[in-house]
Structure formats: C-alpha cells, structure tokens
Simulated scan of single mutants.
Amino acid sequence: MDGNFKPYDWTASAKRIDEILNQPAGQFEETNSLPSRDKLTYTNGFYANCTALFIDIRGSSTLTTKHKRPVLAKIYRAFISEMVAVLNSDRFVREVSIVGDCVWAVYDTPHTTDIDDVFSVAAKANTLIALLNARYEKRNIDPLKIGIGIDWGRALMIKAGYSGSGINDVIYMGDVVNRAAHLAHKAGRGIWGSSSHPIWVGGNFWGNLNDHNQGLLTGLYDSELGYVYTGHVVNSPMEEWVEQNG
C-alpha cells in the first residue's frame, strides 16, 4: 500500500474508532465460499472455508552476511517473482501477499476436490526452489531452503484500512491462517527424517486430500503444533525439466 500524507486528527480518530467498535455482529456473514473483494466494505465481513499456504525462506538472515546488496536484491526478486507466479497459477486463488521474504496465498476451497489443487501448488513451489538453486549456483550464490505450510479451515475476511484515504487491504483472520504460518515456520528446519521435510500440512488439510496425496505425506508429532503431516513432494514433469535444463 502506497502512503499518501494526511494530517492526523485525533478527534476524527476517536469517532472512527467508535464507529468501528459499534458495528453490529450481524454484518459478519457465514458462507461456504470466499466472496469477491468488491463485496467488502468497512462495515461487513465474511466467515468462509479456505486454504492458506505460506512459503518462508530458511536462514534468510544469513544471506545478508554472505552477499552484497545488489546480489541480495536479485536473489529476493527472483524468489518472490516466481513463487508469486506459482501461487497465482491455481484457479482457486483469491489472495496473494508478500511480507518481507515470505509469500503466502489464500484459496477459495469449499469442496474437498479443490484442496488437492492447492496441494499441487505446494509441489510446484517445492520444485521451483530446485530451479532457482540451479540458476543461483551458476552465479556462485548459495542455495536456498524453504518451508511450506498449508492448512484448511474457516477464516474471517474483512476490508481494513484508513477510510477515505485509499489506503486499505483485505485481511484474513483465523486459526487456519495462523496455523499455516506456523507450519511454514517449522518446515524444513529439521536435520533428519520427516522433520526436515520442506512441506508441512495441518490435519484438517490432510484429511481432505485424496488417498494418493495423503500417501505422499508422513505423520509427525510436533511439541508445539501437535500432529502434522510432512513430505518432500515435487511436480514430476517440472522436476524432469529442471534436471535437464536447470
């Protein structure tokens, strides 16, 4: 969101706060599917089923000590550009966001068959890191590791920002978003076995996958997140192309 200077008026601020806090709960509608952005106002919201997918770079803080800023900019630009391309490539995508070196997306998945589509997005993202690393290696750039977290559940979708300023965004709140972010934070950090897998998914998401996709993941008990499912899943045609052309 681009800033645009406006003097701050605390009396107007107090009025806006009261208007927001006095909004009736009935304006927050329960739905099975995420509505279009244009249905949102500053006074309503929607609870809906969705899937959240987060992708984090592992050890990103060490990149700044290894590479000068022009190289660092190229590393991040390539990573963010192509991860966003992958996240945006599914027909159920509703929102794609960038927060620092993390990219994440929300998908409208009211049906169980929709969830397998999002799983294929995660597999492409996991394969993309191999393509990026192959190109980085040719330029003497250390390979990246990532963590991918996914979960399914209900989220509250609202429009938030400074009314009248043009500065606003759509916000998704709920356990599904928080859990996917925590799963991504944990993924790919282990040093052996399933704890080192780059893809971690929550039980709600795993339970809605088809039998084949469920079989690609391994159950793991995490002391903070409870029972999760992990894997190193790739897109086979893409992986073959990377091996031949990377």
Rank of each mutant, 00 (worst) to 15 (best):
I141E: 12
E29M: 08
N208A: 11
V99T: 15
N245E: 11
I171F: 06
C102H: 04
P35V: 08
P35D: 01
N213H: 14
N32L: 14
A14N: 02
D56P: 14
K39V: 03
F119H: 14
L220M: 13
V86R: 05
D222T: 04
H197V: 00
H182S: 07
A130M: 13
G26V: 01
V234M: 09
N204F: 10
H185Y: 10
G174L: 06
N245F: 15
F28V: 06
T127A: 06
D18G: 00
R58G: 03
P35N: 04
K68G: 12
H182G: 05
S13F: 12
S81R: 14
P7K: 09
L216V: 05
V118W: 13
L216D: 02
K186S: 06
H182W: 09
H185C: 03
R91W: 05
H212D: 08
Y47T: 12
H182T: 07
K68H: 13
T64Q: 10
R139P: 04
N44T: 00
V71T: 13
V234S: 11
Y8N: 01
C102P: 03
N4P: 01
D108H: 06
T230Q: 02
P198E: 01
Q244Y: 03
I141Y: 13
I98M: 03
Q214R: 09
A85Y: 08
E82F: 13
S61Q: 10
L183G: 01
A123H: 02
I171R: 09
A122F: 01
D175K: 10
N4K: 15
K68L: 10
E82P: 03
S236K: 10
Q214L: 05
E30P: 00
A160L: 04
P110H: 05
W200G: 01
G190M: 13
N44I: 01
S36I: 08
M1P: 09
T64E: 09
R58N: 04
N210K: 05
F54H: 04
M173T: 11
I167V: 04
T112E: 15
T65W: 06
D2G: 11
H197R: 09
W10K: 04
S223D: 12
K39C: 14
W241S: 02
R179F: 13
I17H: 00
A123P: 09
L216C: 08
S36Q: 13
M157N: 02
R58V: 12
D101Y: 02
Q23W: 06
V71D: 11
N208H: 14
V170I: 11
R91T: 10
L209A: 00
H232P: 03
R154T: 15
W192C: 09
P7S: 08
I20S: 00
S195A: 15
G3Y: 15
S81W: 12
N140S: 15
S33M: 12
V201Y: 13
